[in-house]
Design a protein around this nucleic acid. Structure first.
Length: 364
DNA sequence: ACGATTTGACCCCG
DNA sequence: CGGGGTCAAATCGT
C-alpha cells in the first residue's frame, strides 16, 4: 500500500515536472506551430496523468472519454474530488430527509460543463458521460428558449446516489448543451465504460445503440435518429467549476506552492489555445475517421456503464464503490484512428490497482 | 410487465 | 408571488 502511494507520488511528481519542462519549451518563440501543438498536447497529457493520480479516478472531464471526444480532456479539475466536497456529499447522504433537499442543493458540489455537439446532422443530444441518468423532469426556464431537463442517477433509490444533472440547451448556440452536475456519484453501478473490445464489434455498437436513450435532450423530438448520430463529431468541454465553493476551483490539482495564481493563468491561456488548436487540427484529422463507417463503429466505445456491469467492462473498469469515481478510463480508440496526431492518450488510463476496490481511505 | 419518459402539480426559496 | 427544482401519476416503449 505504501508502495502504491510512493509510486503514485513519483508518478505525480514526474508528470508535473515533465509538464513544467514542456511548458518551458512551449514558451520558446522559435518553435513551430506544429511543435507547439505537440507540446501542448503533451502538457495536457502530463496534467491528465497527474490528475488521475491525484483523483484516483475520473473527473467528469475524463468521463468524456466515453464520448469519443477524449481529446479535449479539460485542464480543470473538479470540486467533486475534493475532500471537502466529499464530506459534504457524505453529509447529504447521511441526512436524506426530504426537507433537506434544498439545503443540500446549496452545499452540494456543483459544476458545469458545456457540451458542444457539432454533428452537422442536426441530431444530437446530451452525450453519455459515463453514468446512467434518469430523467425526472423538464421545465421551461424563464428567458431560455429551450426547456431544461432534470436528470438524476438511475441508482438513486437502489444505492442512494444523489448525483443529478441539469441539461440546458444554449440559447445562442443550440449545438451547445450546458450540463450542470450536482453531487457526486456514490453508486457503484456506474462502472463506466469500458469500451472494450466487445464494443468495437458490430454487436457491441449495435447493442449500445439500442441502449442509448436513457440520455435524452430536453426538447428532443428526434430521439430515434439521434441515437444513431449521437456519437459523431461531438465535442465536449468543461466550462466551469463549482459555483458554491469557489475556493476549490482546483481542489485536487494543486501545484507546488510556487506561484499558484500564475500557474492558473498559464493554464487558462495554454488550454484555451490548446483547445482551439486541437479543435482545428484534431477535428480536421479526425473527421474522416468519424465519417468512415468502419472506423466510426470502432468509435463506439461510449457505453453506459450501468448497462455493462454484468457482462463486460469489468476487466477494464474499476469503480470505487463509495467514491463515485471510476478508476480506469479506457483509452478511446479514437487514438488509434488518428495516425496524424501523435498523442499520448494513455494519460487517460489511470494507474490504479484493480484489486483495490475501495479507495475511500484515499480521502481519509 | 417493467422501466423510462412525460408532464402537471407541488414545494421551497428569494 | 413567481421561478426553479422535484414528485408522481399517466403514458410510452420494449
Amino acid at each position: 500500500m505504501e508502495k502504491t502511494m510512493d509510486t503514485e507520488q513519483n508518478t505525480l511528481m514526474s508528470e508535473l515536472i515533465q509538464g513544467k519542462e514542456l511548458t518551458k519549451q512551449l514558451s520558446n518563440p522559435s518553435s513551430s506551430p506544429k511543435t507547439r501543438q505537440l507540446l501542448i498536447q503533451k502538457i495536457l497529457s502530463t496534467y491528465e496523468k497527474a490528475l488521475s493520480v491525484l483523483n484516483s479516478g475520473a473527473s467528469p472531464v475524463d468521463r468524456k472519454l466515453n464520448n469519443n471526444i477524449t481529446i479535449l480532456a479539460s485542464p480543470y479539475s473538479f470540486p467533486k474530488c475534493s475532500p471537502t466536497n466529499e464530506a459534504l456529499d457524505q453529509d447529504c447522504k447521511d441526512q436524506c430527509h426530504s426537507k433537506d433537499v434544498y439545503k443540500k442543493r446549496k452545499t452540494m458540489a456543483r459544476w458545469t460543463e458545456q457540451v458542444k455537439v457539432c454533428s452537422g446532422t442536426g441530431l444530437e443530444g446530451p452525450l453519455d458521460d459515463g453514468y446512467c441518468w434518469r430523467k425526472y423532469g423538464q421545465k421551461d426556464i424563464l428567458g431560455a428558449s429551450y426547456p431544461r431537463g432534470y436528470y438524476r442517477c438511475t441508482h438513486r433509490h437502489a444505492q442512494g446516489c444523489l448525483a443529478t444533472k441539469l441539461v440546458q440547451r444554449s440559447d445562442d448556440d443550440p449545438t451547445i448543451f450546458e450540463v450542470t452536475y450536482r453531487g457526486r456519484h456514490t453508486c457503484s453501478q456506474n462502472t463506466r465504460l469500458a469500451i472494450s473490445s466487445a464494443l468495437s464489434t458490430k454487436e457491441g455498437a449495435k447493442d449500445k445503440q439500442s441502449r442509448y436513450h436513457h440520455q435524452q435532450e430536453p426538447e428532443d423530438k428526434v430521439k430515434q435518429s439521434k441515437e444513431f448520430m449521437i456519437h459523431f463529431g461531438t465535442e465536449l468541454k468543461v466550462k466551469t467549476e463549482d459555483l458554491d465553493n469557489k475556493e476549490e476551483i482546483f481542489p485536487s490539482f494543486s501545484f507546488p506552492q510556487t506561484s499558484i495564481t500564475e500557474t492558473e493563468n498559464m493554464e487558462h491561456d495554454i488550454f484555451k489555445d490548446s483547445m482551439m488548436e486541437m479543435e482545428n487540427n484534431f477535428m480536421g484529422s479526425f473527421s474522416p475517421s468519424f465519417l468512415s463507417p468502419t472506423t466510426s463503429e470502432s468509435n463506439y466505445f461510449s457505453v453506459s456503464p450501468c448497462h455493462m456491469n454484468n457482462s463486460f467492462g469489468l476487466d477494464q473498469t474499476v469503480r470505487t464503490p463509495e467514491s463515485g469515481i471510476t478508476e480506469i478510463i479506457s483509452t478511446p480508440n479514437s487514438v488509434t484512428n488518428s495516425p496524424t496526431v501523435d498523442l499520448d492518450f494513455s494519460l487517460i488510463k489511470v494507474d490504479f490497482d484493480p484489486n483495490f476496490p475501495d479507495n475511500l481511505d484515499y480521502f481519509s
